[in-house]
Amino acid sequence: MSERTERPRGLARGWLYLLPVLLFAAVGVVLALGLERDARTLPSVLVDKPAPAFALPPLPGRDDRGFSRADLGGAVMLVNVFASWCVPCRIEHPVLEQLAREGVVVHAINYKDDPRDALSFLRTLGDPFTRVGVDREGRAAIDWGVYGVPETFVVDREGRIRYRHVGPLQPRDLERTIRPLLARLAP
């Protein structure tokens, strides 16, 4: 008998009971997406912007004249920020050498390093770099928006930053992102 008076509101109430379940599902989806992305990897605001102006002195004992903004552009290039004290840099080094062997121009910013250590790093592990600029104070790196080493940038023929990779470049990064991007930028 009471059902007769309740029925019109019964449907609305059933929906109301479902609401927490729906909310839970929505929160779950958001959190699951959050798990997938690494919060520590920041998107670079410099992507699709021209590379910053900088001029860095050469690494003593290495045969080049340093690395500056004028060296960028004309071809697709990689800019790697490394230091001899940085362990992940050692891990990614073979990947950079692989790219250099394939004819990709790779420049480097040597970040807050003792030039002697940097030189012996390159003599021991191999030297894939076309130009190396010494950034002892880390000022040029700040202009590049660098917040840790290693970081690697892809710069296109117009001298624009097209991609920034935070952390060591691994073979799978090469296959998944770097190579397809290089192929797209320099067909």
Binding site: L42, V45, P52, G145, Y147
Partner: peptide
């Protein structure tokens, strides 16, 4: 700083 590191 925002030009280099974003609004973050």
């Amino acid at each position: 700083l925002v030009e280099r590191y974003g609004e973050f």
